[in-house]
């Protein structure tokens, strides 16, 4: 038997190591946030939010079209992905106890782990090639495919939380099953589903890989669904690997804008969730 002192020592050491793990995890986060904020703030200007990119080697210009592009592509992704994802989720909760439901649930789980670059390849082959053009639509389709599985699974959970009695009351009043799902069950779970949508949107807005060969990029404003469109993430990538100091500064600033966008969405989702469960 080891001495009590030794055992206490080991206990203390392991506790210290675990606390150290916390520190190790927080250091990169702190470094990353600090740099994005400090270097990002330094490059922010009015122009940054209102202009399109300047030609190579010229300073000035901004990423206004990329900010709009990200919102636009994500908007298209929502139009496609939200009805699909939420619909599939409601199906799983309401009627998903059979083998088909099991298969869908399992597929959704597995799909949520598929690397996003793979979705990019598929969207290129299915949307870009037949349309003969890189487009916001292709980017939106790729992001929508990424949103569907997560949305489906979280919607299912939320819908399952809706009390059975509510559903039965509606059915007893003679409302059809389909309308019950839509107007009673979905409405009750709406707050939670909105939270899930916001989180899915936040994730989609931060994606780069599936946009590389779908939405491509554009140095002009574009809000036409069938044309190439700029996005913040692709712009950050292009600027980061470039040799120009001015572009590096812009990459940091664009990263700050992206983080603020993603952060606001996640925070909104959290607040929404908190208010609901209080």
């Amino acid at each position: 038997m080891k001495s009590l002192g030794l055992r206490r020592g080991v206990n203390w050491a392991m506790t210290a190591l675990c606390a150290l793990a916390l520190l190790v995890a927080l250091v990169p986060l702190a470094s990353l946030l600090w740099l994005v904020i400090s270097r990002g703030l330094a490059g922010l200007s009015w122009d940054f939010f209102t202009s399109t990119p300047a030609p190579v080697g010229e300073s000035g210009g901004g990423v206004a079209n990329a900010i709009a592009g990200t919102l636009y592509i994500v908007g298209i992704a929502c139009l496609i992905g939200v009805p699909l994802g939420v619909g599939a989720g409601v199906y799983l909760a309401e009627r998903g106890d059979g083998p088909l439901g099991g298969a869908i649930r399992f597929t959704a789980e597995v799909l949520s782990g598929v690397p996003s670059i793979i979705i990019g390849i598929v969207a290129y082959a299915l949307v870009v090639l037949p349309m003969r053009r890189f487009s916001a639509l292709a980017g939106g389709v790729a992001l929508a495919v990424l949103m569907v599985p997560t949305l489906a699974r979280s919607t299912e959970e939320l819908v399952r939380l809706v009390p059975r009695s509510l559903r039965e009351a509606s059915l007893a009043l003679g409302v059809s099953e389909w309308r019950t799902s839509l107007s009673v069950v979905l409405r009750t779970a709406l707050g939670g589903i909105l939270t899930a949508i916001l989180l899915a949107v936040a994730r989609a807005a931060g994606e780069t890989a599936p946009l590389l060969f779908t939405a491509l990029n554009n140095q002009y404003w574009n809000l036409r669904a069938d044309q190439p469109t700029a996005s913040l993430t692709v712009q950050i990538y292009n600027y980061a690997v470039s040799p120009y100091q001015d572009w590096h500064d812009k990459a940091w600033s664009a990263a700050l804008v992206l983080l603020l966008l993603v952060g606001t969405l996640s925070l909104a989702a959290r607040l929404l969730a908190r208010n609901r469960f209080r």
Binding site: A25, L32, G206, T208, T233, I236, A240, L258, G263
Partner: peptide, 13 residues
């Protein structure tokens, strides 16, 4: 928060 940071920002860092 760490989980929510887009990968291109990790790349930049």
């Amino acid at each position: 928060l760490l989980a929510g940071i887009p990968s291109v920002v990790y790349g930049l860092w």
